[in-house]
Design a protein around this nucleic acid. Structure first.
Lengths: 339, 339
DNA sequence: ACCCGAAATGAAAACGTTTACATTTAATGC
DNA sequence: GCATTAAATGTAAACGTTTTCATTTCGGGT
């Protein structure tokens, strides 16, 4: 059986389509009594508004696109929780696409979002950023864009970011203060503003203790478990001694740990391992991993709020929100005995 | 500046809207020459079809809803990869919603999908299934539904599932053959068809070796890391000796491992640990976890194909596809020396 | 040159809302 | 009781496609 439309309701109630429409949108200019009549009939005839028609008329799709760099890590998963928590109650749905850390795919995803005519976009950019033209086009089209975690290039859009510098500084400082002098750093496989930022904080923290960075103890690797394993192999190949590893990504740190343990190295007695931008994964390994955990759910919520704000009021200004990441000192850097 | 419409193109080219539309949809009944003219003009005027209008006319949204039970585990993440790989090239977008293992949220998500008028649905049902009415309503509305992993209740819809029984049987059999006699089992916190299936295979495999199941060695726990930790605490509290643990979920198994290691228990020397329905997470812990890995990407692809098939031909039959999960024997059950 | 069928194009309705504007009804003040 | 204004309802256009049906154009066979 066909679905009920406003027309059907109107006919049934001897009203015009307009009044029925007004009765359902609870605006003014409608008599309480007729409103009730309409609501009752809508209930009876199981009326469900055709959102597509509404979209055509209003020029909005009620959907926000979420383009993520990856999904395997809980990073995005957690943030999505915050996003969904804000968006769904507002009746906004989430159109998702994953880029799998491939800039070309990221661009395709954005184009798809453009075609789907989303009302706004929340983007977790890939580490390696490609072309930024799509972003500029979207922004020119007045589609609000909010970045989480990174901003590819210098795009004029809202952004939610953690204060990486101070956190990395604290973490590395902590490693040195607890007696480590030969700290290795596993960074990204390609230079990016993000990884460069972490590395400079790393360098700065060591410098504070009059330690110079040994280039042989800096190794680039994919931000994955396998990257961490490969990084350890590379470090060992280089033959320089190290008593701590600070990895730019948690998955790397976990790979580092696994590889070291495999080779009989004790953690943290022989080598301390610290990760970064982690999540509950860090708690699942043994020994549990010291890391810095951004408030992912909160970041998602903030991003969602920002995008909704801009959707509802296109003249709203772009905003750059800083969030405070939590430093979690655990056994991978100081063993169970540490206070 | 306003976006270009068919009308604009028609006016510019002195054609009717109809012909322009036909030219762009590459059907028959259009002269090669005019088609080229239209295409050229469309390019020049940067014409982008208004998909919303098209949706209204065709009654399709070009979106498939994906409702997932959780996101933290790579389970769904991997399957999504398969889904996206199939759907995106067909121009179908993915409307996502996560239920966070809350049946009430699952129902709300499904309602949201219904309102968004998705063309079809792929669902990873929660462990605890609530009301199945929504499903029945969706199916009655001729919205194709494909389940992955589980089928909540006995709903007449397509389904992609792994052959759990034989895999669990194999795994438990393997534990016994490698010398374990007191095998504990961590199952779900609430009885569900899925967990019951695993447990019965577990019982059957032990029975084959004339081992009876000690009810004290069966413990229910949430399918999470914390659930695994709690399960070990409970087992130790009960005081019965055990030399192996088979956990129904990988996160549980990892929690079990972590908790045991914390207490100085050696894995696998003292206790062997096996998980189930895992993913690359199992490879990240130390020692690496023995588990059964469903072909997640493939399952996602199959689900996507099934849903598209049914969207394109509503009379297509429902199908129940079995996939073959991979058994991964690793160090958590037999140590590095094992062949 | 004429007719016929096929191919190409045009006219217009339809999809189901929302909303500006016009009209009717009700309420208020004198 | 009548004018004035506000509230409630109706009319109809619009959103941008797709598609049915009618019309025109074209090519080929006699």
């Amino acid at each position: 059986m066909k679905r009920t439309t406003l027309k059907d309701l109107a006919k049934k109630l001897n009203l015009s389509v307009a009044t029925v429409s007004r009765a359902l949108a609870d605006g003014p200019n409608i008599r309480k009594e007729t409103k009730d009549r309409v609501l009752k009939a809508a209930e009876e005839m199981n009326y469900k508004p055709n959102t597509i028609a509404s979209h055509l008329r209003t020029g909005r799709t009620g959907a926000v696109g979420v383009v993520v760099d990856e999904l395997i890590t809980p990073f995005v998963a957690q943030a999505l929780r915050g996003i969904q928590r804000v968006l769904h109650p507002e009746g906004t749905s989430i159109l998702m696409a994953c880029s799998y850390n491939d800039p070309a795919q990221e661009i395709r995803n954005l184009q798809m979002m453009e075609e789907a005519q989303v009302d706004g976009l929340i983007v977790f950019p890939c580490h390696d950023t490609g072309d930024t033209d799509v972003y500029l086009r979207l922004i020119e089209k007045n589609i609000p864009v909010v970045f989480i975690g990174r901003n590819p290039g210098d795009i004029h859009a809202s952004e939610i970011a953690a204060d990486h510098h101070s956190k990395v500084y604290f973490l590395v400082d902590h490693l040195v203060r607890t007696g480590r002098t030969k700290v290795a750093h596993v960074t990204g496989n390609n230079p990016s503003p993000y990884f460069n930022l972490l590395q400079s904080a790393f360098t700065e923290a060591l410098g504070r203790h009059r330690l110079t960075v040994d280039p042989d103890l800096i190794v680039g690797a994919k931000p994955t478990f396998e990257g961490g394993v490969a990084a350890v192999d590379e470090l060992l190949r280089r033959g320089k001694d190290f008593d701590a590893v600070f990895a730019a990504a948690d998955l790397q740190a976990i790979g580092v740990m696994n590889c070291l343990l495999e080779k009989g190295v004790r953690i943290p007695e022989d080598v301390a391992v610290a990760g970064y931008a982690g999540s509950y994964l860090a708690k699942m390994v043994f020994p549990q991993l010291t890391t810095v955990e951004p408030p992912l759910v909160e970041m998602g919520e903030k991003a969602a709020h920002l995008v909704m704000e801009k959707i509802n009021d296109p003249s709203a200004p772009d905003r750059m929100l800083k969030v405070d990441a939590k430093i979690l000192l655990r056994h991978s850097t100081h063993g169970p005995g540490y206070q």
